[in-house]
Amino acid sequence: MLEIRNLHVAVDGNEILKGVDLKVGAGEVHSLMGPNGSGKSTLAQVLAGRETYEVTDGEVLFNGKDLLDLSPDERACEGVFMAFQYPVEIPGVTTNYFLRAALNAIRKYRGEDELDAFDFIEFVKEKARVVAIDNSLLQRAVNDGFSGGEKKRNEIFQMAVLEPKLAILDETDSGLDIDALKIVAEGVNKLRAPDRAIILITHYQRLLNYIVPDAVHVLVDGRIAKSGGKELALELETDGYTKIAGQRAAVETEKV
């Protein structure tokens, strides 16, 4: 479904991603871990189409299409969803209105009929149930005055409504208490589907106690330093990133 080849990305001339290769197949859940500043969020932002990042080399194929050629809204319409690390507030615009505008933009793109307000509300209430979100949230302005935890849950809710093909969760688990973490994890587990791929970007291993990934990748200094199964996350928990970073450095030295 998603294929990243030799991706190099720079911001203001500083190279942040230094050749990332990653393949994520339909139905798979991949976890991307790494220390601060390793480039995890950059990768998410580039996939979603943030324009402050400059792709200097490499390519990204999404279901065979060149993803980098599309605008952010086109990518969303193609089925790419990013749960933001810092969800943005939009005062005065209700979540209901916002999500309907989004869903209808996506439906229109796909050549489907737009949902009217009544059909939409039925559809969305069902989704709210799935991710245990209170219906009153729909009438509140998007993320406005939400606590950090509420914002993160709202992202999962939006993911449920927009039914993406590829969901990238950028540190959705950070700052959550244990109950909220379980709700988010449950939401993600419910949304696992054979035609949907999920990338979990996380700073902490804890989330993986509740979501079992198919693969774990460790990003260090702009490159994937190590890939493995779910046991890799536990290894990281005990040894930390330094050891892997060290191994990576050793490999680099050998190459030279």
């Binding site: 979603a48 189409g49 943030r50 324009e51 605008s71 952010p72 809204d73 990518r75 969303a76 319409c77 969803f81 990013m82 933001f84 969800p87 943005v88 939009i90 005062p91 005065g92 615009v93 209105y97 916002f98 999500l99 505008a101 989004a102 869903l103 933009a105 996506i106 793109y109 302005a141 939006q158 927009l162």
Partner: peptide
Amino acid sequence: FYCNQRGIGMEDAINMIVNGF
């Protein structure tokens, strides 16, 4: 960008944000 990422085009996004305000 947040609106765009949800599939909403630029023009609609600006109007939505300003009118909400």
